[in-house]
Write a protein that binds this DNA or RNA. Structure first.
Lengths: 139, 139
DNA sequence: ATTAATCCTATCAATTTGGTAGGAAATACA
DNA sequence: TGTATTTCCTACCAAATTGATAGGATTAAT
């Protein structure tokens, strides 16, 4: 299941992307419009900023803005920041690979085999989608 | 991430499927061979039995066995029993559909849109795989 | 009877999740 | 220069979930 963090993060990104201008958007505006607890959202946007997806500006007229065009923001990156590894087991993860200590031979491991297929198909979806596609900005 | 429960369950099913005969297999044998805590595995096999995937026999010479041929056991069913809904959000779940209370219109919801694609692609993998395929029984 | 297995209920510690609180730091503008 | 406004940071917390363990009841073979 998708965590609330990821869900809120995606909704917030969509909200920002759908704005006409690229002026900074205040947290409270997003929180109210998307029905997200403000303080929680604050921490989520902060991690999105630290990962380089969002930029921020402090003080009056401050807020968060996209660092790139929506069409340039790949969902693989967004999902990795918000939800963590895309793979369902570390032994098939591209970016967070880890060997299972209970598994003598990965090539013979049925779980590995199945989850590799799942990873590939999920990755394909995220690679084919940018923030623009999935928030419907250029339609 | 895949829960240990699911991982252990899949490994256990594979172990049973790879046995030449369909004689009941004891929990302790699976636990030892697959490095799974015995008591935990007991509870997992129990839910697999209650869902109809496994059968069991009590007492001496007892154990668990497959209710159907490996090639008849679809991974969609197995995954739903072990891991729960395949969809990452209830609002795109086929079997456990639930409306989001914070979402006025699903057709406009970007999360819904993206997760629908993910669900479809994951479902395709699970529908294309039976226990036989993924444990390599008929190769 | 005895032994060997599943079945069932209850409990529990550790981790993760989803959030809140309070204030420090930076910025715009009067 | 002061004040309002916003992000930023740290710490904390309650509830739910996960990954087990314990102990015995039940069933079946010999």
């Amino acid at each position: 299941m998708l965590s609330k963090k990821t869900k809120y993060g995606l909704k917030a990104l969509t909200y920002i992307a759908r704005r006409a201008t690229n002026e900074p958007v205040r947290v409270i505006e997003i929180a109210e419009n998307q029905q997200i607890p403000q303080k929680f959202l604050e921490s989520i946007l902060l991690t999105l900023r630290k990962s380089g997806i969002l930029g921020s500006k402090k003080g009056k007229h401050g807020g968060y803005y996209l660092r790139n065009q929506p069409a340039q923001i790949k969902m693989t990156d967004v999902m990795r920041v918000l939800e963590g590894p895309i793979a369902m087991v570390p032994c098939v993860s591209l970016n967070y690979y880890e060997k299972c200590d209970d598994c003598p031979d990965e090539d013979l491991c049925s779980v590995n085999k199945l989850m590799l297929e799942v990873r590939d198909s999920t990755l394909k979806v995220f690679r084919n989608n940018t923030l623009a596609d999935f928030s419907g900005v250029n339609e």
